[in-house]
């Protein structure tokens, strides 16, 4: 039994080392900053702020807010909130400078597709560390936006 355990540990350790080496050189490796973000546990009021779909729509109509879509570019091309910009989750985590904030401190609304998205919360936390503006995530996500009948546009 001891020999089995030793062999299992050797295989597990070899897998971990191999994985770290591959991840280090892989163009789509998992960035370290993803591990440094703590989005588990109860939310901290300053760390992430949801905005309701109705309020977000009001900001859209007044052209006050900037919407950032963190889904893949393919999903963004299919449909998105009118006027939104595409900022895929992969991109922002591999290159946090990909978004520099807005010039006149317009509120920024991050959205993903599912009703509850840890990814959207993670992006909000990351951007709040680097920007002083108002950054929110869309409560209910894009799926909630569509289910309430709010508009969407396609990118050709």
């Amino acid at each position: 039994m001891t020999l089995h355990i030793k062999k299992i540990l050797v295989i597990l350790f070899a897998g971990l080392i191999l994985g770290c080496i591959i991840n280090q050189f892989h163009p789509n490796g998992v960035p370290l900053r993803l591990m440094m973000l703590d989005i588990s546990g109860p939310p901290r009021s300053q760390a992430w702020t949801p905005i309701s779909t109705d309020s977000a729509f009001a900001l859209l109509v007044n052209r006050t807010a900037l919407f950032l879509d963190i889904r893949t570019r393919e999903d963004f091309r299919l449909d998105h909130i009118p006027g939104a910009r595409s900022l895929p989750f992969h991109t922002i985590f591999r290159n946090p400078n990909a978004f520099q904030g807005t010039d006149n401190n317009r509120p920024v609304i991050i959205y993903d597709f599912p009703v509850h998205s840890d990814r959207a919360v993670a992006v909000v936390r990351l951007l709040k560390k680097r920007n002083t503006g108002r950054i929110y995530f869309l409560r209910g996500g894009f799926s909630g936006w569509l289910s309430l009948g709010f508009p969407a546009e396609k990118k050709d």
Binding site: L12, L16, C20, M35, S40, D118
Partner: peptide
């Protein structure tokens, strides 16, 4: 898991 452990699993599990 949280993001930290998910990252570790994503790195270590495929080679395993």
């Amino acid at each position: 898991f949280g993001w930290g452990v998910s990252r570790l699993v994503a790195i270590a599990f495929p080679p395993l």
